[in-house]
Design a protein around this nucleic acid. Structure first.
Length: 426
RNA sequence: GGGGGAAUGUCCCGAGCGGCAAAGGGGGCGGACUGUAAAUCCGCUGGCUAAGCCUUCGUAGGUUCGAGUCCUACUUCCCCCA
């Protein structure tokens, strides 16, 4: 990598955020000359962003930190289409209501990373212009600049074509709308750079071309590498898969645990990407070898959790983990599931209890866990699946359920909760 | 418009002479070993009031003692011809 003149690119570069830049020298020049405006788009496919978007959020953060103006673009319009890039099949269409509700959850996280005061950072929703487009007008103004031949050549749609899966016309339009977003943002804010994950390269480059043609303006693209550890690739599929950033979808404790379990080889990389710690300190921490690297992982987990959930919650998660793992003590701050007292005094089967606690999806799954020797109640291994829990099992008012060595939940009886509707999931 | 193919365990890929809860792999989870790591080895990976019962192979019918497997229609997708 060449040495960049601008602070912005230098920071991104040394921290490992850069995968590709369309015109590195040109962009560097522009960044060195004065503040620029850049944006990253976020889809509203779920009620929360997950760890995969953290890289993007951090890029916006560093951008502001180095004196530029970031835009978080909410995909209220584009999510109505669904980005087909590198997807092997079409996604289910979301309703407008779902999208708007999802946006509410997504917006929340940005205020923790960006300072929106006085327009130093912007949050814009592309629904503002996309939902009211006039079709024929749009085709004549924008559509004529796109070549289908070229669009078909992008890697992002190749997967779909190669697998002989249908790529609907609806989805095919996604990159056109994304390109148009770029132009629209340029008009509104003078934005000249779009960033994103490396899977967005094709879409972004399309926007650059459109900018040339419609605005006679020089746009730039910058992409980040794709997160590729175990769960990174295919997040968000199964119930336990995604690492959500919203505390009501994933507790700060579980979030902390996720980072605590980082592979040795990823520690340095994650410190650079996901924390604000200075580079020399990161170098020191990442250099720790053998068992000592565990100390670095704890710091990593606490730092990353602090950014998303606040310092207090992060320290608490660290403390809970310390008690649970290092002292073997019962920490009252472990994730807790409440059940009506009556249910316990009537006698609650272990299997049902584990299902109740969300540690198993069905009695059968809980049974298998017992047979596999994975289940503990109050740290005592359970061998008999017909074991019944009663008030006698309470320790300090709770029962500790463990599945495997890492997953622990406290079961807490409470008197007359609001409404026991029995559907109290996640 | 005509012709030929495809859809399998709801995480994915993928085998399946009419007796199938359905091979195999990936992924995931658990166990052993460790450092709450990686690698390796082992087990599990439809539901239930479980030696039994129930629900699964695109959808709806049909043939059959019995259908993922055969027939018909439909849906969606792919390919070729016009």
């Amino acid at each position: 990598m060449t040495a960049f003149k601008s602070d912005f690119l230098r920071v991104l570069s040394e921290r490992g955020f850069i995968h590709q830049i369309s015109d590195p020298a040109g962009l560097d020049e522009a960044c060195a000359k004065g503040p620029i405006t850049a944006y990253i788009g976020f889809d509203a496919t779920a009620p929360s962003l997950h760890a995969g978007s953290l890289i993007q959020i951090m890029m916006l953060h560093w951008m502001q930190e180095t004196g530029h103006r970031p835009i978080a673009l909410m995909g209220g319009g584009t999510t109505m289409i669904g980005d087909p890039s590198f997807k092997d099949e079409a996604r289910k269409l979301l309703t407008v209501e779902d999208i708007d509700r999802n946006l509410e959850g997504i917006k929340r996280v940005f205020s923790k990373f960006l300072d929106f005061d006085g327009g130093r950072a912007l949050m814009i929703n592309n629904a503002d212009w996309l939902r009211h487009l006039n079709y024929v007008e749009f085709l004549r103004d924008v559509g004529r600049h796109f070549s289908v031949n070229k669009m078909l050549s992008y890697d992002s749609v190749k997967l779909r074509l190669d697998r002989e899966q249908s790529l609907s016309f609806l989805e095919f339009n996604y990159m056109i709308l994304q390109g148009y977003d770029f132009v629209e943002l340029h008009r509104r804010t003078g934005c000249i750079l779009q960033m994103g994950g490396s899977d967005q390269w094709g879409n972004i480059v399309n926007g650059i071309d459109l900018g040339h043609k419609m605005e006679r303006a020089q746009f730039y693209a910058l992409t980040s590498p794709l997160l590729t550890t175990s769960s990174g690739g295919k997040m968000g599929k199964t119930a336990s898969g995604a690492i959500w950033l919203e505390p009501d979808m994933l507790s700060p404790y579980d979030y902390w645990q996720y980072w605590r379990n980082t592979e040795d080889a990823d520690v340095g990389r994650f410190f650079k990407l996901y924390t604000k710690l200075p580079m020399d300190e990161i170098a020191r921490l990442a250099a720790l070898g053998g068992a000592e690297i565990n100390e670095a992982k704890k710091i990593l987990a606490t730092e990353v959790t602090a950014l998303v959930h606040g310092r207090t919650a992060a320290d608490q998660a660290a403390e809970t983990a310390r008690k649970t793992f290092e002292e073997g003590a019962l920490a009252a701050t472990l994730p807790t599931v409440e059940i009506p007292t009556a249910e316990l005094s009537a006698g609650l089967g272990v299997l049902a209890a584990f299902v109740r606690a969300g540690l198993a999806a069905s009695n059968g799954e809980a049974r298998r866990a017992v047979q596999g020797g994975a289940v503990k109640v109050n740290d005592v291994p359970v061998a008999d699946e017909r074991l019944t829990l009663t008030a006698a099992d309470l320790v300090d008012g709770v029962i500790k359920l463990s599945q495997g060595k890492k997953k622990h939940v406290l079961l807490k009886p409470v008197n007359l909760g609001p409404i026991p509707d029995g559907g109290d999931w996640e």
